[in-house]
């Protein structure tokens, strides 16, 4: 156990976060607009992935890294710098405070926690966008929370499998 630092494999962790950013940025295909003309069903990707790594490897992934990835999303999505970072830092903070309990939760309860954190982040976004005058429909901020919660039971086993099979420590 003492020589963990020598061959700790971390790239799957950072790659999964990068993929979450890419999924957020990829434009929706044309058929999405025709199928769901005025409803935003695109899940929030970065927050649940951050949440997972914060409870699985709290010693590797912490608030600082979450802040950096939040900034990455701000830069690439073209919003104000700091738009996503507060919500992510608070989510990872809470996840780290209670990671031992959160690991024991069944999927359903974890999904609820993820949903609450996603809701917090969307509220913050709504508030920031409202204060800076670029507010769109409030509905568009909250429908993704539901899809994010529905995504969790798929995302959690996937990331878990990734972590265990690739020995991410």
């Amino acid at each position: 156990m003492s020589d963990h630092g020598h061959h700790s494999r971390q790239w799957p962790l950072w790659t999964s976060l990068l993929v979450a950013v890419l999924f957020t940025l990829t434009p929706a295909p044309d058929w999405y607009g025709t199928l769901f003309p005025d409803i935003n069903l695109r899940p929030i990707w970065l927050l649940p992935v951050c949440f997972y790594w914060a409870i699985a490897l709290p010693q590797r992934f912490s608030v600082g890294s979450a802040w950096l990835f939040g900034l990455l999303l701000d830069v690439t999505s073209g919003g104000l710098l700091g738009r996503h970072t507060i919500g992510l830092v608070i989510s990872v903070w809470i996840a780290q405070r209670f990671y031992l309990q959160l690991r024991q939760f069944p999927f359903g309860q974890q999904a609820i926690v993820v949903g609450l954190l996603a809701m917090l982040q969307q509220l913050l976004l709504l508030w920031i966008d409202g204060a800076t005058g670029v507010l769109s429909k409030p509905m568009h901020y909250f429908t993704p929370v539901i899809t994010t919660m529905m995504l969790w039971p798929l995302l959690f086993p996937l990331l878990r499998k990734l972590r265990i099979s690739l020995h991410v420590r």
Binding site: V63, L81, V92
Partner: peptide, 15 residues
């Protein structure tokens, strides 16, 4: 952890 989280949030607000 708490101090870092609070500092990062403050920094974000300033940003």
């Amino acid at each position: 952890l708490n101090a870092r989280a609070i500092l990062l949030c403050l920094f974000s607000v300033i940003l």
